[in-house]
């Protein structure tokens, strides 16, 4: 077990060190996410009024889009420097490599959400920060679910042709439950009186999704990454 967590930590630290050196993915993804929200604001805010209930959807769309970009870039970098091959050749447990990658992506997305939430709250006049704990729970579970599938697919696609287009094509149909649950839970949070039962249902669904898909990914990462 200690070997497993050590590998996870090493993979995570490696990604972090590489990212900190240039901050390429972080900056591009953040800027992309912000432009995404701005485009929605231009498209939907009319006469200074935001559409009712739009904030939750826009927040999650921005997360999904930015997440796809981050996933693609992270693994593109690995591919260009042939490091993923080296990583997989190393005598390390494959699932540990996956978990390390997953944690890196989740951290990156959570950082983006910290910027996105205030921005959406501001532009769409939504009381997103009224219940910070609930919101954090929804965002964390939703992000893990999205990234769990995304990390596996992005890793698989490293060897495929036209991987840039294929990633969203494969990822979005599979992550529909996450998006529905995330948007509905966030929308319930934005109601004048918060409906805790509804949020709890969606959170339970998100947690189940996370558990099932992380388990499945750990289980299939080995056969999928073997040539």
């Amino acid at each position: 077990m200690s070997g497993f967590s050590r590998t996870v930590w090493l993979v995570l630290r490696k990604d972090f060190t590489v990212e900190v050196r240039s901050l390429e993915i972080a900056y591009t993804m953040l800027f992309f996410a912000v432009s995404c929200v701005l485009i929605f604001a231009f498209a939907l805010v009319q006469e200074g009024r935001a559409p009712e209930g739009g904030a939750a959807g826009i927040l999650w769309i921005a997360v999904a889009f930015a997440g796809t970009l981050a996933l693609g870039r992270t693994f593109e970098r690995e591919r260009q420097s042939e490091t993923l091959r080296a990583l997989l050749l190393a005598p390390a447990a494959r699932p540990a490599v996956y978990v390390g990658k997953l944690l890196g992506i989740v951290a990156l997305l959570l950082a983006a959400e910290m910027l996105l939430v205030p921005l959406v709250a501001l532009l769409f006049q939504a009381p997103l920060l009224a219940h910070p704990v609930w919101l954090a729970l929804i965002l964390v579970t939703g992000t893990i679910g999205f990234a769990a599938v995304g990390t596996l697919f992005a890793a698989m696609l490293v060897r495929a042709r036209s991987r840039d287009v294929l990633l969203p094509v494969l990822l979005y149909p599979i992550t529909v439950p996450v998006i529905i649950a995330g948007v509905r839970a966030t929308a319930a949070l934005l109601q004048p009186e918060m409906d805790a039962a509804v949020i709890r249902f969606w959170l339970a669904l998100l947690v189940t999704f996370d558990v099932v898909f992380v388990t499945l990914s750990l289980w299939t990462f080995e056969p999928l990454m073997t040539d």
Partner: peptide, 13 residues
């Protein structure tokens, strides 16, 4: 469009 190796990926999908 996946090129070589897409059989395994498709099975995963």
């Amino acid at each position: 469009y996946g090129g070589p190796g897409s059989d395994k990926l498709a099975a995963g999908l």
